[in-house]
Write a protein that binds this DNA or RNA. Sequence first.
RNA 1: GCCGAAGUGGCGGAAUUGGCAGACGCGCACGACUCAAAAUCGUGUCCCUUCGGGGGUGUGGGUUCGAGUCCCACCUUCGGUACCA
Length: 818
Amino acid sequence: MKKYEPKDIEPKWQRIWRENNTYRADEDPSKPKFYTLEMFPYPSGEGLHMGHVRNYSMGDLVARFKRMKGYRVLHPMGADAFGLPAENAAIQRGVNPREWTLNNMKRIREEQSRLGISYDWDRYVATCEPDYYRFTQWLFLLFYERGLAYRKKAAVNWCPECATVLANEQVEDGQCWRCDSEVEKKELKQWFLRITDYADRLVDDLEQLPHWPEKVKAMQRNWIGRSQGAEVTFTIPDLNDEPVSVFTTRPDTLYGVTYLVLAPEHPLVPQLIRGRENEESVGRFIDRMRKESELERTGSEVEKMGYDTGATARHPLTGEEIPIWVANYVLMDYGTGAVMGVPAHDERDFQFARKHGLEIRQVIQPKDETTEELKNAYVGEGVLVNSGEFDGLEHRKAISVIADRLEAEGRGGKTTSYRLRDWLFSRQRYWGCPIPIVYCDSCGTVPVPKEDLPVLLPEDAVFDGKRNPLATSESFVHTTCPSCGGEARRETDTMDTFIDSSWYFLRYTDAGNDRLPFDKDQADRWMNVDYYIGGIEHAVLHLLYSRFVTKVLHDAGMVKAVEPFEQYDPLGMVLKDGAKMSKSKGNVVSPMEIIDRFGADTARLFILFAAPPNRELDWSESGVEGSYRFLNRVWRMVEQHQDLFRDRPDSRPEDAEAKKLHRLLHQTVKKVTEDIGERYQFNTAISAVMELVNGIQAYPEDADRGTLAEAIEKTILMLAPSVPHLTEELWHSIGHSDSVHDQDWPSYDEKALIQDEIEIVVQINGKVRGKVVVPSQADRQTIQDQAMEQEKVKTMLEGKTVRKVIVVPGKLVNIVAN
RNA sequence: GCCGAAGUGGCGGAAUUGGCAGACGCGCACGACUCAAAAUCGUGUCCCUUCGGGGGUGUGGGUUCGAGUCCCACCUUCGGUACCA
């Protein structure tokens, strides 16, 4: 008997599949399409880790399954190849970022190949290649034409370590998402993409994504932070009735406003304090706030600090003059950078008013309660009091009524505010996609014509870690104006690398196109991605940006899809001993080492079997051995029955054992088909096949041989998506000359699932007391009669009165007695 | 604080529509094969028990003939987010 030697068979089949182009995407238009995608990797110098293996194993299982089910499947791979590590390697070790990246890509591709994943390698894309980033630039120009890319000066996030700016999404707890450095604020002129124009659609269209986890949708909703309310315009008598607007979700409390608070950065503040006695102290406070980092400023434990400007504002409805304060807790980049203080009905305002001795005026009264002095802010329901003509209104109604009144008087009105800011898009780094913009003294900002793309990254940039390398390249910076032909300078910032991954799934649909990013027909043939797998750390980065870009391309008529990903499955982490694998902990399990020892099939099987897809998976050495053991059992099972396949008898399940195995086989096919195809629960699909293998091994020698042969053959087919090499080898060993991966997925026969006789549980008062075997079609009465006939049941019922008998055909009988 | 998810054997985890809790695997124990070991195969493995049975899915209540599953209250853990007006 031949031994199972993954070392021999895995490379062999990988070679044959490559030579036969087995996994090229099928273009047959008569088949339904299926697009399955795993997030492409950043080609770091580390190679693949177990998280990748898990990701790819799951995607490959689905791709192979769908292919066998008769779909034309798109299952591509690429490299998210722009990024800082390459450039840092250039600075620290003097290597060329491009070479460094391409080397890593090569290694990662080899490692992916060793896993035996069924990619259509012809569609491989690398975002750092000119034939890709040329179209990233093309898309930028499309955004620019549509008014969605603009440049403005603003206080932006600056990471001193990365020496570049960051989008809001890329700042976590005031720290850089990549290097954890504390982020600073800098006033810079930068490029932005107008993602806020799409805020409503990005929220509303989440409704169209029932196959996304609630969690991820909630994170995106929170991030966009849409909130309905009103804008209220106060005026400042001392400044010629200069208007100052605030945003509030509670216009119903407008009569409870006793002061206004502005953010320290609010543009009116300098004018307000000019010449007043506290000009100096307030000025110092403002300077300090400006210098403070995001973290110092917005950390949860930061004390509320505020200063009276001495100026006053006029209430839009009452005309009352109220003091204007400046405080650190009001943020310039949310709402209007100013808030109205309603201490009676807002927790923060209450504390602030207490601390600074400001008036607290109650204007909402809980129903059926008398007024007492407030010990806390009252934020509940109630009716309006002390609110002039609005007294007695229910507060929810008042929200609308008062907002309408403000609008009628030209002093505000209903509005919606968002937390989402425009996407800060430019980066002061080399290893990214150059922004195709030229600055000309006579023509101003000029986009590079699409036919002149790509704007190539220069080879002569200097990597000294002190400045943007692109700016050091004379050959790059100096150019001619596309408009007037005069001397001009190129934009030296590159694009945020998140743009590269925001459209790669579209490029895959038409990877070779040298005219356009992709052809509309091709994109429409494949989009949306039906099944997308990858880390949840991208819940509000990559996944939000991709949704935005897809919508813009849809609006431009480039693709039908309005959402990129039909179903998104967040991938659970791979742990070791309950902890994240990391070099510092020394608990990293190397995928290639596992493949060397057990083979890729074992690694894949273990990872699929050990936990459901989106839960954490604890790597277990003995678990891997168990998977290896199982594959050996399958191998031996087929080897032992080689004779069966020489004359391949037909399946005639007539004896009891054969009927049993036949039924088990069909049950298993049904379960595995549903677990993979509908529930995406791969661990239970595999356990079902294990049960079938157990059943086959218990099958007696003298029972029907044809039934056995069928069961073995279908076991191989059902395992093919999970362990492609082993099954291919076994498939050929039982006499087939075509690939197991080109076979039809086994079907099951509902009739085969029906048993002649079934076991029914007999309960007395809900406790199992016995079992009866009845014909499967038996009616309620027959089942009940048989149950009551049971010896055990009889003795248990002695001296008791039967009150009720519940019969669930096919399941159980419950006798209620006392 | 707010939002989201999850609590089931020694461990990873099953139980799809309210119907036999613990599938499958790991680990462990015993047995077979062997001079012996490894490998393999087989048997057992939630807890208690006077062997009749009793208890058991984070806690306490409820609905139901019947609850891991539904409802109410709470506890714990994990993830996200947080002066967002």
